[in-house]
Design a protein around this nucleic acid. Structure first.
Lengths: 251, 251
DNA sequence: ACAAAAGTGTTTTTAGTACACCCATGT
DNA sequence: ACATGGGTGTACTAAAAACACTTTTGT
């Protein structure tokens, strides 16, 4: 991944600018053609894949670091990005650590890292995936066609998915995943994909509308076969309000 | 808090044994006499209070570190202890940092720390609070009689409470907070205290029993005034199962 | 004319809320 | 005997699940 020279330079730089022992990994979900997708990078010249991630600068808030990392990889910012879990198994970077130890003992990557997992929901259309220094590609993968992820990134991804599913039951989602305008069946497909189960068309519509976070447009979508569906878009104000309040909730 | 000599020694030790930049803070909830309480330490010779916390050893899993810290402060272990949020504001330790910088520049405490918040629910009766090196006391405080907490510990406490309340709606709680045997009204008082509102006696009972995590004993509690209430205890197997499955949950 | 997608109900079931009555015990 | 805390049951209401019929449009 690195030549010795590159590694030496990177380490010098990293030690100066970043908090040691701490990294951030992002699980970035997108939605396209009825499929939930995740943004994944591929190591140059290796059959290894990994989640977009990075480090925290010495005076940088964690959320800002996550925003920065996301922006670097996707070109987008100001989106829903949320910390969901810290992964701190001392063995989690073992392979990685040892590999770099051989090249240069006592270097940045030879250290133990605990990583803070962030997840984001983004509009597939707006993303321009950009590989980082060590990667030969950065692209979307369907959830059911994931390549083998390095380290504990599979675990991180699964935990993110679990969190996302939980979130679904008490928070509105979709604003950052759907294009500006969309039809009810399209939104339903998003929910079905995330939950991995079929939902009743009519009950879904009623429930979503009851949240009172959508605006229906006058004009239905034309041109397609079959009956023209209405177009909806999120009412940002109401959406934000629902995010803060929660949608239902317990006792 | 430290003499210069103590500080030098602590720093040497800490640098050798702990991960830098990372700490753990625990919000330990207990329940006694109808009050939800939190375990809080007081700084020696200062009117400052703080949450029990500590650092992560270089080869120690995070959860183990949290367990260790909790055990040191309370004498108990093997309990429900859960990571709930990471606090990483670069300014969060500012006062602290500067104070120590004056005594000894470039020392362990002068660094920025991100802290991982854990919360625990423990049986008040089993806890033997033990002050740490820097504290003159370690004791329970009612939620509505909290002293002024240092750094962002008030924020951490509030976030823990929020998480606890959310948890309540989809997970059983109480196993680690209640004594072995308890009555239904006693358990209800726990829920009411956490949620900070009155619940209907009859509906509460029905709902809790529907979770199917309690065993009712043959013998009611004798001796007290009024009608003798039944005693219940948690069915550990069913409780664990409910913890894993969740209690209700959305779509 | 018909298949496929979408709009709009209605009925049934379940979960949640509100409320009423009876029982035991100490004063 | 009565006040208080505790056990049990029932009616009402709102939300979720199941299910049916109609409309539009391309072929």
């Amino acid at each position: 991944m690195f030549t010795k020279e590159e590694l030496v330079e990177f380490c010098e730089n990293a030690n100066k600018n970043y908090l040691s022992h701490i990294s951030i990994d992002c699980v970035i979900f997108g939605f396209h053609e009825g499929q939930l997708k995740v943004l994944i990078l591929k190591v140059k010249n290796h059959d290894e894949w990994y989640l977009p991630g990075g480090f925290v600068m010495k005076a940088e808030p964690l959320d800002t670091a996550a925003d920065r990392i996301l922006k670097e990889r996707t070109g987008i910012d100001e989106i829903f990005l949320q910390q969901f879990h810290v992964f701190g198994d001392p063995e989690r970077g073992k392979v990685h650590n040892d590999m770099y130890k051989d090249i240069m003992p006592d270097n940045w990557f030879a250290n133990r890292f605990i990583t803070i997992g962030y997840y984001a929901l983004v509009d597939f259309e707006n993303v321009r995936p950009a590989p980082d220094l060590h990667s030969e590609s950065c692209r979307w993968y369907d959830l059911d066609e994931l390549p083998t992820l390095m380290l504990d990134h599979k675990l991180i991804l699964n935990k993110a998915l679990e969190t996302l599913r939980l979130q679904l039951s008490y928070q509105p989602i979709g604003y950052n995943l759907m294009p500006k305008e969309f039809t009810m069946p399209e939104l339903q497909r998003l929910y079905e994909t995330i939950l991995d189960k079929k939902l009743d068309r009519r009950n879904f519509q009623r429930r979503i509308l009851a949240f009172d976070i959508l605006d229906r447009h006058e004009q239905p979508r034309k041109g397609g076969a079959h009956k023209a569906p209405y177009l909806y878009s999120f009412n940002v104000e109401k959406y934000q309000h629902a995010l803060r309040q929660g949608l239902s909730g317990g006792w």
